[in-house]
């Protein structure tokens, strides 16, 4: 009873805290000062069509590195908790529908994932989304082939190398260009083409590989521990 009262009080406080957002709501008509600068100067400075990508990879690149680190730590925690596999469970074979569907869809899904992270600077998408799409393809593969073992060594190598190269590109920016993770270490190229925006496609490819490998690692751990 007391507990319930406390929860209600906490909820009421939260509502009171959030209510000004609703009551004092004034629709924005103009961009904020920071956003104004990003929108005005972003295409010329960074060379990417997608400004969200420009913000994530270049302007706030350090935050993205931190985000990758958080993802890595969470994956490491999951691997640590589920690492010791407890006895082998025999799983039933997947149905023919799943098997045929996987054989047909898996290459398309992987290709789509690669497409998404390669076009991160041009269209909606990027490394994180592409990595998740690739991991979903691998999930389908794991569902179809119950006894398959994905080499965790290979996953670790992909993850480590892409993470290391990401930091190396950042440090190269410090030496060759204006600052850490500056994308102009490579020529900006023609605006709107696939190979443009300096190092952004390279960085997003590395992020895509890293995120894909990490999520596949989570799936792998969960499959082995069941």
């Amino acid at each position: 009873m007391v507990k319930k009262l406390f929860s209600l009080i906490i909820l009421a406080l939260l509502v009171i805290m959030l209510l000004p957002l609703m009551t004092d709501f004034a629709p924005f008509a103009e961009l904020s000062r920071v956003a104004e600068k990003y929108v005005q100067k972003g295409p010329a400075e960074v060379g990417g069509q997608n400004l969200v990508t420009s913000v994530i990879v270049t302007y706030r690149g350090l935050d993205t590195l931190g985000e990758i680190a958080v993802l890595f730590i969470a994956t490491a925690g999951i691997g640590f908790l589920l690492g010791k596999s407890s006895g082998k469970h025999k799983r039933s074979e997947a149905s023919q529908l799943v098997n045929t569907g996987t054989a047909f869809l898996l290459p398309i899904i992987l290709l789509f994932g690669v497409f998404i992270f390669l076009h991160g600077h041009l269209t909606p998408g990027g490394g994180f989304q592409g990595g998740v799409v690739i991991a979903s393809g691998i999930l389908l593969f794991v569902l179809a082939n119950a006894d398959s073992q994905i080499s965790s060594n290979l996953l670790h190598w992909i993850e480590d190398l892409s993470g290391a190269f990401y930091v190396i590109i950042g440090l190269l920016g410090l030496i060759l260009a204006g600052g850490f993770l500056d994308n102009s270490i490579l020529p900006l190229g023609q605006f709107g083409k696939l190979i443009s925006a300096g190092a952004i496609p390279l960085i997003y490819t590395l992020i895509g590989l890293k995120v894909g490998a990490e999520l596949v690692g989570i799936l792998n751990n969960m499959q082995r521990s069941q």
Binding site: F28, L31, S32, V34, A35, E36, Y38, V39, Q40, G42, P43, Q49, N50, L51, V52, S54, V55, L122, T123, P124, G192
Partner: peptide, 18 residues
């Protein structure tokens, strides 16, 4: 959306990317 392709002429047409 803040994607500066041919459909977007000026900075006044996109939302906040942050």
């Amino acid at each position: 959306a803040p994607i500066m392709n041919q459909a977007v002429q000026s900075a006044g047409q996109v939302i906040d990317p942050v």
